[in-house]
Nucleic acid binder design. Sequence first.
DNA 1: AACGTTATGTAATAATATAACATTTATAAG
DNA 2: CTTATAAATGTTATATTATTACATAACGTT
Lengths: 132, 132
Amino acid sequence: MQKEHNLSKNQKIIFDLIDKSGGPMKAYSILFNVQKKGIKAPLQVYRALDKLVEIGKIHKIESRNAFIACQNSSCQISKATAFSICESCENVSEISNSKLSKYLSNFSDNSGMKYSKYNLEFFGLCKKCKSK
Amino acid sequence: MQKEHNLSKNQKIIFDLIDKSGGPMKAYSILFNVQKKGIKAPLQVYRALDKLVEIGKIHKIESRNAFIACQNSSCQISKATAFSICESCENVSEISNSKLSKYLSNFSDNSGMKYSKYNLEFFGLCKKCKSK
DNA sequence: AACGTTATGTAATAATATAACATTTATAAG
DNA sequence: CTTATAAATGTTATATTATTACATAACGTT
C-alpha cells in the first residue's frame, strides 16, 4: 500500500496535467499550460516537479529533460526506474519488469559502493517507427 | 579493434582536458579551461563534445549534464553505458561488467520495441563517503 | 585544381534551472 | 484554540545549459 500524499494546489494542477498528457512533458511546456491556472513562474513549476519526483508520482527522463507520470502503481518511490525511449517519435514508456528490477536492485560490483538507486534508459525504435 | 579517429584540433584539446581531469566535466567548465587555447564560444565546446560522444571517446552523464572520458577501451561506441555515481562527493566511474552489459544488451520485453542502446546510472555512496 | 565533407569562428538567443527573499497556508503539539 | 513549526506559495532576478544561423577555412578525395 502506497502512502497517501495529499498534493498541494500547485502540485495537483501540475500532476494532473502531466498525467493526462500520457507522455513526457517539459518544464516550460508545463508552465505554458498552467498559466491560465495562475502558475506564472518557472520556479513554481520546478518546486512542484521536485516534490512530485520525491514522492514518486512522476519521474524525470534525464536524457530528455522531461517528466512523466509514474505508470507503475507499485513503484518504489523512484528508487528503481527504467524507461524505453523511441528515438524517432520520442514516445516514452516506463518498463515494469520484475526480473529486470530485481537484477538491477541486487546488482553489486567490487567497487565498494552501495547502490541505493538506479535509472535506466533504453533507446531504439518503437513498433510504429520501425515499420516506416 | 577500434577504428582510429583522427581528432581535430578542438576535439583533441577538449578530449585531453576531460581525460586528464579523471572525472566528469561540465561544458562551461571545459569552456573556461580552454579559453587560453583559443576556444572562446560555447558552440565550439558543444560541437567537439557532440563528436567525441558520437565516436565513443567520451560519455555524457545525463543526470549531471557532464562529460567523462571513456574508461573502457572496448566500449562499443556508447551503445551500452553504465555508471556509478556517488551522491555525496559526485565521483563518477564507468562500470565495466560483462555480465551486466550482456544482460542489458540482450534485454527485450513484449513492447515490440527493438533496443539498440542503453544508459544506466547507479546512485549511492562511495566507500569514502559511506564511512564518514 | 575542383569538389564535397568536416571543422571552425562568431554573435545572438533559446531552453533549462536555481538563488534569494517575503509571505501564506497547513500540520501538529500543548 | 493558539502557538510553533514545517511546507508551500509568490515574485523578481539570475545562473546554467544548449542551439540557431550564417560565414569561412581546412581536409580528403579524385
